[in-house]
Design a protein around this nucleic acid. Structure first.
Lengths: 339, 339
DNA sequence: GCGAATTGTGAGAACGTTTGCGCATCTTCG
DNA sequence: CGAAGATGCGCAAACGTTCTCACAATTCGC
């Protein structure tokens, strides 16, 4: 037995419209009736129908989160932070996992539109998908990845600066031959982290060597492969340190190194971009450049909510780009190179 | 510029209702008009408004997932599986993270009702929360945890049987003193895993010793604490194996053991209930009793969808309880006890 | 104490669908 | 060939809100 506004109105001896005004708080109602209606509504356990309200007002208090997956450590942190922040503002989260499939991403964005979501957060890269958002004036924020043609502000990691600082740290420990396990150049964060690394090398006047850069898909398997390859280098050209540009690759690299009996940090210093539970608990604890995923999620929600409440017609402006700084967390996996 | 059904109807020179019927497929429309309307709808990029449809038909094609958190490894696996299965059936997921707070849980269930979700999956334990679901005939399935008074079928792990088998395995390796890091008795899975352990001991005629049972909150901190306490036992009463009843506790226990220089499995065999990335990559690889979280999520979705399409008035029957079997995954952390 | 401004309330239209009902038109068969 | 059934279509009501408008009742200014 579901009680609607009409019943509340009837029970408080008032018209439908006054009942609505009394509860919504907007519009002119006498204090007395307002209180009475409120009381009746509570007694009857009235709950406004979100669909009807959404249909009328054109906003659903739902926010779509389009995300590639949930298993990746940074991503479920982001999902949880986003959820919590939205909840605090009275919004709810519709979760859309795309598996990095552009088709899925597009389909999801359409469905979210169908459901009249008030805004969308996108962790993904497909360009076409977000295009339809621009058209409909649904505010969108890009998170962690930047499409070539964004539909809204982008919240990204300060990847260049972070990788630069990471490499500086290793250089400061007298490492000269630093390997890099890097992502494919297509993904901006992968490209930028490598660029930052190179920048630091250039500053220090240390030569950039192609044979120390292992560029491939950032998955455990590739991390393991990279480990094998760098150990196969001849004695004098083998790296004394390695910068792994994401934690998935590290998940493969570290066990591979251990299997081969490589001592960390004695024989090889390891620094990983992005933190993860496993890196903290590894033996030895892995020094990381934390990309602050939680802060990125937080900022993205703030921007989205601003856009929603503030100016509905604000799309079309060139979106601004925010960079959340990374942070070096020193553990035990990096040590001064033996000269 | 959003195009609604009226525009489609006008453009195809047909009334609103025929347009609706043509697209929905139900009702009598001539093949010719149907095709024409379909074509026009596609050309115009018509997308039905989910809110309006939901308001009319009373179903939203949204499913609520009420879950305690996402950080726990089993849980984000469940979330992802559930999402994928629902997507395949044309449903979308509204994610509600409760942080194990009964109040939040209740609030969420109410909000989901407001949004006319077609069903709810609950990973949580609050009894009152789900009560309101019974009243409204919204199908609900409980997942991983069983409340005292469930609102629908429960999909649980076969915890007694799993723990029994795990302990049997350790007994088979000639361990006589097996420690258990167990959860609080209030949570059924915690209680049952301990019970299964005890069952196996009884079968084998091995005495159950209170001082080997470390019951507390299943968090890393408690795992570490348990490690400290079991090592503090006098020589002859120290365990030769330990059964950790969830992976969170293991995250604390394992580093604590390593810090103290305990060799695994030489000095202590370790078996953990529930699998996790970190346990696979630990050195040595930790033997686990995998609770098959993914299969639980899968089953729960199947049951929920059945309930939705089949019989709307089927609540009120005593809910049935499904048990998904656990599976022993042998790695390197358990070895025959020295006698 | 009278017109003007202010305040409280209700009637009713919208939001975009789905669907029951009735009316034509077309087939079918004795 | 006429009645009965099938078929294709449109009208209009409903789903549960919000919100504009109009009207009555009250207060205010001079």
């Amino acid at each position: 037995m579901v009680v609607d506004l009409r019943k509340v109105a009837a029970a408080s001896g008032v018209s439908l419209s006054t009942a609505s005004r009394a509860l919504s708080g907007s519009g002119r109602v006498s204090a007395a009736t307002r209180e009475r209606v409120r009381q009746v509504a509570e007694d009857l356990g009235y709950r406004p129908n979100a669909l009807a309200r959404g249909l009328r007002t054109n906003h659903s208090r739902l926010i779509g989160l389009v995300i590639t997956n949930l298993v990746n450590a940074s991503l479920h942190v982001i999902a949880e932070v986003v959820h919590d922040r939205l909840k605090a503002s009275g919004y709810h989260l519709v979760l859309c996992i795309t598996g990095d499939d552009a088709g899925e991403e597009r389909a999801y964005v359409e469905t979210l539109r169908d459901h009249n979501v008030d805004g969308v957060l996108v962790v993904g890269s497909d360009d076409e998908a977000v295009q339809s958002l621009r058209e409909t004036d649904i505010p969108a924020i890009h998170l962690a990845r930047r499409p070539r043609r964004p539909a809204g502000d982008c919240v990204l990691g300060a990847d260049i600066e972070g990788a630069r600082e990471a490499t500086r740290y290793l250089l400061g420990l007298s490492h000269q031959r630093i390997a890099v396990v890097a992502g494919p150049p297509a993904v901006t964060s992968g490209y930028e982290r490598l660029a930052g690394h190179r920048l630091a090398l250039d500053e220090a006047g240390v030569p950039y060597r192609d044979d120390l850069v292992f560029q491939g898909p950032l998955e455990p398997a590739w991390g393991a492969e990279a480990a094998a390859r760098m150990l196969a280098l001849p004695e004098g050209r083998r790296p004394t340190a390695v910068l792994v540009t994401n934690h998935e690759a590290a998940f493969g690299l570290l066990p591979a190194l251990r299997e081969r009996g490589v001592r960390i940090p004695g024989e090889l210093s390891v620094l990983c971009y992005e933190d993860a539970d496993m890196l903290r608990w590894w033996d030895p604890g892995i020094t990381v450049m934390d990309n602050n995923a939680a802060r990125m999620g937080d900022l993205a929600v703030s921007l989205l909510l601003d856009r929603i409440v503030a100016n509905p017609g604000s799309t079309g402006q060139t979106p601004t780009e925010y960079r959340v700084g990374a942070q070096l967390v020193i553990r035990q996996s990096c040590v001064i190179a033996e000269s």
